[in-house]
């Protein structure tokens, strides 16, 4: 499906959606939002890209393979749980560090876990969408 209007709009909307998805991701600790919702918003951005430019273009826009997103996401989730073992607590005990990151706030294992969820959701959703879009 070729539509100049839609393609031009996608060029502007796509980066906005990705930025917004990251905003939703980091907002999620104390307010509505989080890794799953953020990942879905990000995946919606890529879905827009698929509809406008086709799956091949969307693949290049993702830069890495979808499985890599998934694998890194899962690794981050596992890693965020393992950090607490190093600190001597039970698995998945939340660890907070006093380092302040500008804009984002405190660093802690929940943020790592949510980032993992975010990446994994993008990866899985894109695998599903692309296998539906390819015919």
């Amino acid at each position: 499906m070729f539509s100049l209007l839609f393609r031009t709009a996608t060029r502007f909307l796509f980066p906005l959606m990705i930025v917004f998805s990251i905003f939703v991701l980091f907002r999620g600790h104390n307010a509505p939002g989080g890794g799953f919702i953020g990942g879905l918003v990000g995946a919606a951005g890529f879905a827009l890209y698929i509809i406008a430019f086709g799956t091949e273009q969307a693949r290049t826009a993702m830069r890495f393979s979808r499985r890599l997103y998934m694998a890194i996401g899962l690794t981050l989730m596992l890693g965020s749980g393992l950090v607490s073992l190093l600190a001597g607590d039970a698995f998945m005990t939340t660890q907070w560090y006093s380092i302040q990151i500008p804009v984002l706030g405190k660093l802690g294992t929940p943020a790592i876990f949510d980032t993992g969820v975010y990446l994994a959701v993008i990866g899985v959703t894109m695998i599903i969408l692309m296998s539906l879009a390819e015919d």
Binding site: S65, R67, L68, M70, A71, L74, T75, L78, G81, L82, F91
Partner: peptide, 14 residues
């Protein structure tokens, strides 16, 4: 954790 880690490694070596 062990099967989880093994599964993740499997995805890395797809």
């Amino acid at each position: 954790l062990i099967p989880f880690a093994a599964g993740i490694l499997g995805i890395f070596f797809w």
